[in-house]
Computed example of a mutant assay.
Amino acid sequence: MRDDRQRLDKWLWFARFARTRTLAARLVSDGYVRVNGTRSDNPAKAIGLGDVVTVAAQHATLAVRVLDLGLRRGPSEEAKGLYELLSGEAG
């Protein structure tokens, strides 16, 4: 994969939308994630900077713009630097 792209499930895990990468992949495959307004059921879908990811989680629906791809699953403050909140509320 190109350096300017990252797997959707990996990014969701790095950005702390899921506790494990397996759960991140399940969020995608179960249809709870949209990329640029289109539902994605492929955890390996490549996303890049500027893409809008919408996650319909159990307690909130969040729309975020991808600002960085990340290199690891770091602390919460580091994870928040990977995206800009566009709408929704953290629950």
Rank of each mutant, 00 (worst) to 15 (best):
F14I: 08
E84L: 10
D9P: 07
E77V: 14
R21V: 02
L85K: 14
L86D: 07
T22W: 03
G88N: 10
E78K: 14
G50E: 09
G37V: 11
L12K: 02
D30H: 13
L82R: 10
L27V: 00
A57F: 01
G48C: 09
T54M: 14
L69I: 10
A25D: 00
E77P: 08
P75H: 15
K10F: 02
Q58P: 06
R16P: 03
R72H: 12
N36E: 07
R73W: 14
V53E: 07
T22E: 15
R5Q: 12
E78R: 14
S29K: 04
R16S: 03
R72Y: 10
L67K: 12
E78Y: 15
H59K: 15
V66K: 06
D51G: 05
L71K: 15
G81H: 15
L8D: 07
V64F: 12
S40H: 08
R26V: 04
I47L: 10
R72L: 07
L71T: 14
N42R: 13
P43S: 04
A24F: 02
G74L: 12
R73T: 09
L86A: 07
Y83N: 12
E89L: 13
G70T: 13
R16N: 01
R65S: 13
V33S: 04
S29P: 03
D68C: 05
D4L: 04
V28R: 13
G81R: 15
L62G: 03
R65N: 07
L23G: 06
L69Q: 09
S40L: 06
F17C: 01
A44N: 09
L86M: 12
E84P: 06
Y32S: 11
A60I: 00
N36Q: 05
L23F: 05
H59R: 15
F17T: 00
L69S: 06
N42L: 05
I47A: 09
G37N: 12
K10C: 00
G37M: 08
A56T: 14
F14P: 02
